[in-house]
């Protein structure tokens, strides 16, 4: 079954919006706010669009504002993957 891990998210972030020079993306970022990692709301929209395209998740825009950390986003994406059991 398809999965979406924090590493998958890291890969999408690198490929789509880049990484701030002061940020170590490989560190434990699961509970760090996106804004503290240098990603504003526009960057988050871009990241989500790329996830949607690759994974077919169709994340509604309204949901994005609550997904404030990589951990929350990855978990949300996992719940929307085709074949995922609704939680």
């Amino acid at each position: 079954m398809q999965d979406f891990t924090l590493d998958d998210l890291r890969r999408v972030m690198r490929a789509s919006v880049g990484v701030d020079d002061s940020v170590e993306l490989e560190s434990d970022i699961a509970d760090t706010e996106f804004t503290d990692l240098g990603y504003d709301s526009l960057a988050l929209l871009e990241i989500v669009a790329k996830i949607d395209k690759e994974y077919g998740t169709a994340i509604p825009e309204d949901a994005v504002q609550d997904l404030t950390t990589p951990g929350k986003l990855a978990e949300y994406v996992r719940g929307r993957l085709p074949g995922a059991v609704a939680s």
Partner: peptide
């Protein structure tokens, strides 16, 4: 230009 800024 830093990579974050480059894409914007």
């Amino acid at each position: 230009v830093p990579s974050r800024l480059l894409v914007e």
